[in-house]
Simulated scan of single mutants.
Amino acid sequence: MIRRFLDQAAFKAGQEGAVIMLGLRPDTISALLLWGLQDRANSVALVPVSAVLTRE
């Protein structure tokens, strides 16, 4: 279920330029790391939220 939300967020980021996802539970963070290591390395960058908020 978490991966489905991440896939939707990646799609939206492709349309809008950036999306901020926040996960606080250990299982959410684990799913995020596994998801990021899959075949999305070429299309998605996992960065600190400050990188998105301070970008010009």
Score class of each variant (00 low, 15 high):
residue 2 I to W: 06
residue 2 I to V: 13
residue 2 I to A: 03
residue 3 R to A: 10
residue 5 F to K: 14
residue 6 L to M: 09
residue 6 L to I: 05
residue 6 L to R: 06
residue 8 Q to N: 08
residue 9 A to K: 03
residue 9 A to F: 11
residue 11 F to Q: 14
residue 12 K to S: 14
residue 13 A to V: 07
residue 14 G to Y: 06
residue 15 Q to H: 10
residue 16 E to A: 08
residue 16 E to H: 11
residue 17 G to E: 01
residue 17 G to N: 03
residue 17 G to V: 02
residue 18 A to S: 12
residue 18 A to D: 04
residue 19 V to P: 12
residue 19 V to R: 15
residue 20 I to M: 13
residue 20 I to C: 15
residue 20 I to T: 15
residue 20 I to R: 06
residue 21 M to L: 13
residue 21 M to V: 15
residue 22 L to I: 15
residue 22 L to Q: 12
residue 23 G to Q: 04
residue 23 G to I: 05
residue 25 R to L: 14
residue 25 R to S: 15
residue 25 R to Y: 13
residue 25 R to M: 13
residue 26 P to T: 08
residue 27 D to W: 11
residue 28 T to L: 04
residue 29 I to H: 03
residue 29 I to A: 07
residue 29 I to F: 00
residue 30 S to A: 13
residue 32 L to W: 13
residue 32 L to G: 10
residue 34 L to S: 09
residue 34 L to K: 05
residue 35 W to T: 01
residue 36 G to Q: 02
residue 36 G to E: 01
residue 36 G to D: 03
residue 36 G to W: 02
residue 37 L to P: 00
residue 38 Q to N: 15
residue 38 Q to F: 04
residue 39 D to S: 06
residue 39 D to F: 09
residue 40 R to N: 09
residue 40 R to E: 01
residue 41 A to Y: 06
residue 41 A to H: 11
residue 41 A to Q: 15
residue 42 N to I: 02
residue 42 N to G: 06
residue 42 N to F: 07
residue 44 V to R: 04
residue 45 A to K: 04
residue 46 L to G: 11
residue 47 V to Q: 13
residue 47 V to A: 02
residue 50 S to N: 03
residue 51 A to W: 04
residue 52 V to G: 09
residue 52 V to H: 07
residue 52 V to C: 13
residue 52 V to W: 11
residue 53 L to Y: 10
residue 54 T to Q: 07
residue 55 R to N: 03
residue 55 R to F: 00
